[in-house]
Write a protein that binds this DNA or RNA. Structure first.
Lengths: 182, 182
DNA sequence: CGTACACTTGAGTAGGATCAATTGAAGTGG
DNA sequence: CCACTTCAATTGATCCTACTCAAGTGTACG
């Protein structure tokens, strides 16, 4: 989970990361990371030496290309998140996030049955969606009542992906290319 | 101005682009652009052939490195925007946007006197900040009254950059590296 | 002089925040 | 095994920020 903290304690979750994602590209270039990272599952990290980044680009163009691919798609995910925060109401936002996570998990081979097993607290959801904890809880219940998304402490389940997607206002499943693994 | 449209007509401005920025990296890789681009000033474009992108990475590592730099920093800007939309109220959001734009213009050599001359309608600001047009207008007036930001139809002026930054909750002017030009 | 477009202002409303308690599920230690 | 703490989820009540609706006022332009 990538997060940013404001000085007064407010926290914003930027995005959830998945196996194969690359962390800290901007930090590798600037020397200072603009955000924090927090693990919500056990993780395995592969560490790269930042001072050899340029050499890597020069000697391994295929790798450099894949990293650019990942960066561009991470950017696209952030754009989608911006659309959610700017234009969608609480229910649409939560549905959109659930669809995104389940879809994203599915793409990396997790959640083959449409159910994503992961432990996320309502506080974390609240900080991702820019909602209060209380309202997050109520929105969660509303979506469960509508049978659109069933999000419990340790799993996200979407009975009908298509209607959830439509409810959230996510445009048709645009053609999805397979992700490269570095 | 990079924007995304929802099917029901809602629009979200993703970010403002400046001279030297690179557009459509993700589209170059996927063949389909996830957003629209709209000019708010007259612009000069330099067009690249998308099918030679990989060759470029392989033969011009310095160029590839710079493009990665730009992509990583665009991502950082989007993160900041996400923090605004998720955690800041209307006034803080607008102040943060004004500071970002003036700062960004300053960095590319525009607005050397702290005043950015650019024509932005209140409707465009509203779609960037996820606010209604009416509330955008009132927030604008409030910030003018507070003498924090004076944003008129064709200029953005910030009398005291430091207090505006503090009001918006933007953490100390983190060390800024010069931007590469492709 | 009419149309178009952006900005402005007022009044009422609603979506979501805040405040305040309560319940439930794990741990932890005596 | 049971009190005790901790942390997350839940519920009720009230408040406020920002939205919506509606009607203006410029200002530019053909």
């Amino acid at each position: 989970m990538r997060t940013r903290l404001l000085e007064d304690g407010r926290r914003q979750v930027i995005n959830f990361m998945f196996p194969g994602d690359f962390l800290g590209l901007q930090a590798a270039l600037d020397g200072e990371m603009s955000h924090a990272v927090e693990a919500v599952t056990s993780v395995t990290l592969c560490v790269f030496a930042r001072d050899r980044f340029f050499d890597m680009v020069a000697s391994q163009p295929r790798l450099a290309f894949d990293m650019t691919w990942l960066a561009a798609h991470e950017e696209a995910a952030l754009e989608e998140h911006i659309v959610s925060l700017g234009q969608r109401n609480a229910r649409e936002r939560m549905a959109a996030l659930a669809v995104f996570l389940v879809q994203r998990a599915h793409d990396t081979g997790l959640a083959p049955d449409g159910v994503l097993t992961i432990t996320v607290t309502q506080g974390q959801i609240a900080d991702m969606l820019g909602l209060s904890l209380v309202h997050t809880n109520r929105t969660l219940q509303a979506l469960r009542r509508l049978q659109l998304v069933d999000w419990t402490v340790n799993s996200i389940s979407i009975p009908d992906l298509e209607s959830a997607r439509q409810f959230a206002g996510i445009d048709g499943n645009s053609f999805r290319l397979p992700r490269p693994y570095i």
